[in-house]
């Protein structure tokens, strides 16, 4: 008997949620019709993003927040993204280890995912996974990613509240604060606060936040929270900051604005992704792309007229001449 995945997801079935996520990962066509049908049931979950360099204790923090949320009887979905090896294509997904205490709790669904080098962008896929959890009835969805590269910044745009985790002694603060982090961080967490250099890091981050806020005249000034996640210290402050940011977004109307922007961006990206997918598939199917490359190499063609030709071929009406 075939499983009605849509109905099952809406009832919160982990089996169905897990399978549709796999289809999303594999860019399997079966995902699309499911996503279309569950879409009307999304938009209820609050989405939290947690990012930071490897070794900052993100999983432990995620575990702590999950614990706090469960104590308030809120259900939680987690998507933990770890990098794939560019050499072997494999991945070690270790975040589950830190979440052992939730592993028998039906109120928590956790999915580990590898970055895989998605041609369509990791963000595309993460968005899908978040929607599945959202439609599956999770009150909170937490996305956890490693690093602060462009991919991660894109992923974080999916979140309503984004937390950037830093630790003393990694020395990457200034670098990461330059690299677009200031733009996405709603909350800073200084984890492993029992380590030397914590106070200094705190002051440094606070200084940059103040500086940035005074220039940009922000209505939300990101708080800086100190935690020792392995001991559960600061977990409640962290949750309080999240709640405060949520309240701010809701009361100021920024949540709707944020979500509208997100739909705008997402829709454009999805169109881009789909067009790209179709064209890529056709060009690779009969090795046409290889012929083109050959001809460009031999200077018979150039990339500019190839682009024009390809686009005209499939989208003749789209060109504004």
């Amino acid at each position: 008997m075939d499983i009605d995945y849509v109905a099952e997801i809406l009832e919160g079935s982990p089996l169905a949620m897990a399978r549709v996520m796999t289809w999303l990962e594999n860019e399997d066509e079966r995902a699309r019709s499911c996503m279309e049908k569950i879409y009307p049931h999304t938009g209820n979950a609050y989405v939290l993003g947690i990012t930071g360099s490897p070794g900052t204790g993100k999983s432990t923090l995620t575990d702590g927040v999950t614990w706090q949320l469960r104590n308030k009887e809120l259900t939680v979905g987690i998507v933990a993204v770890d990098p794939s090896s560019p050499f072997t294509g494999g991945a070690l997904l270790g975040d589950r280890i830190r979440m052992t205490r939730h592993s028998a709790d039906p109120g928590v669904f956790m999915r580990s995912m590898a970055t895989r080098g998605y041609l369509g962008g990791l963000a595309q896929f993460t968005r899908g996974a978040v929607k599945v959890l959202d439609a599956g009835g999770k009150d909170f969805v937490i996305i956890e990613t490693v690093g602060v590269g462009q991919d991660e910044v894109d992923v974080m745009r999916v979140a309503d509240t984004t937390c950037v985790v830093l630790v003393p002694g990694l020395g990457d603060v200034i670098q990461s604060m330059k690299a677009g982090i200031m733009e996405i961080a709603d909350i800073y967490v200084i984890n492993k606060y029992d380590r030397p250099g914590a106070d200094q890091l705190f002051a440094e981050v606070q200084f940059r936040v103040d500086q940035d806020s005074s220039i940009k005249d922000r209505s939300w000034v990101p708080p800086v929270i100190a935690t020792v996640a392995v001991e559960g210290k600061g977990e409640d402050d962290f949750l309080e900051a999240i709640t405060a940011h949520r309240t701010y977004l809701e009361q100021s109307g920024k949540l709707l604005e944020k979500r509208r922007n997100r739909i705008h961006e997402e829709t454009l990206q999805m169109i881009h992704h789909e067009l790209f997918r179709i064209i890529r598939e056709r060009l690779t199917k009969d090795s046409r792309i290889e012929q083109m490359v050959e001809e460009i190499m031999n200077h018979k063609l150039n990339p500019y007229n190839v682009v024009e030709k390809v686009v005209d071929e499939w989208l003749p009406a789209s060109r504004l001449k």
Binding site: D63, I97, R98, R101, V230, E231, G232
Partner: peptide, 10 residues
Amino acid sequence: FGQYRPKEFI
């Protein structure tokens, strides 16, 4: 004391 929550390093 609480319980030790292991960190596994692979």
